[in-house]
Design a protein around this nucleic acid. Structure first.
Lengths: 123, 123
DNA sequence: CATACATTCAACCTCATGGTTGAATTTAAT
DNA sequence: ATTAAATTCAACCATGAGGTTGAATGTATG
C-alpha cells in the first residue's frame, strides 16, 4: 500500500519545505478542493499552483480525483507518518534541552530571594 | 532563543529532505564529529560534504565549534521540534486511515468462516 | 621557517525549483 | 456547433542544489 522507502521520505520533507504547499495542505485538511480553488488565494499563476500540486502528489500527500473537467484534490496525510517517525528518533534530544532550560529557570526562581546564585555548571 | 518563524520551518524540512544530511544527523546523534569525520564515509568530495553541513547549520540543526584547525559539529535537534509540531496537526488524519484499515482487517477476520462478506461501505 | 593538515572558497557543470506566458486539451454549457 | 471553463503542457527565465576540481586560508608540527 503505502511505501516507506527513503526516497519517499525525501519527497515528503521536500514537499513540506515550502510555505505555499504547507498552506495548501492546511486547506485540504478542512475539505477537498479543486485545483482552481487551491490556486485562488495564492498570488501566482494557475500553472505555478498546478506545479506545487504535482509536487505534493509526487510525495503522495494529495490524491486527485478527476471529475469531468475539474480535478478534486484530497489530503492523504499517511506519508507524513514516516516523517513523524523519523523525527521521533530525535525527540529525546530536544526534550533534554527543554528540561535543562526548565531546571535552569526553576533554579533561578528558588534563588530569587537569596544572594544571587548562578545555576550550577556541569563539571 | 530558538526561532519558530515559517522560514525556519522551510529550512528544517529542506535540510531533512536529503538522505546524506539525514545520515549526518544520525551519526551526530551518537557523538559530535569534525567536518572530516562527517565526510569520511560519504562517496563525495570534502567540499560537497562541507556544503551539506552548511545547509544543516543554516537550518540550525547543527552547531559548529571551531577548535583550532578543526571544526567540531554537534547536533541541535531543537529546530526539529517545530517540524514535529507541524506534523502533529495532521496526525489524526493518518491515524484515522490506520484505524479504518484495522477495522477492515478485523471485519475480514470475523468473516473468515462465514459466507464472504465485504466490509460495509459508508452510506 | 617550511610543511602537512583541516576546512573553506571560487569557478564551473548539470539539473531541479518556482515562477512566467501563451497555446493545447478536455469537458460543460448555450 | 460554438463558446466558455478547468487544467495541463511547452517554452522560457532566474535561482539554488548538489556535485566536481583546484587554489586559498588558517593552524599545527617537524
Amino acid at each position: 500500500m503505502v511505501e516507506f522507502n527513503p526516497s519517499r521520505l525525501d519527497a515528503v520533507f521536500q514537499a513540506l519545505a515550502d510555505p505555499t504547499r504547507r498552506a495548501m495542505l492546511g486547506r485540504l485538511a478542512k475539505q477537498p478542493l479543486s485545483v482552481g480553488e487551491l490556486a485562488a488565494p495564492l498570488e501566482m499563476s494557475l500553472a505555478a499552483a498546478s506545479k506545487h500540486i504535482k509536487l505534493l502528489e509526487r510525495a503522495g500527500l494529495i490524491e486527485r480525483e478527476i471529475q469531468g473537467r475539474m480535478h478534486l484534490c484530497r489530503l492523504n496525510a499517511a506519508p507524513m507518518h514516516a516523517g513523524m517517525e523519523w523525527l521521533r528518533h530525535y525527540e529525546r534530544f530536544w526534550m533534554q534541552r527543554l528540561h535543562q532550560l526548565e531546571a535552569l529557570l526553576h533554579a533561578e526562581d528558588r534563588a530569587a530571594g537569596k544572594p544571587t546564585r548562578k545555576p550550577r555548571r556541569r563539571s
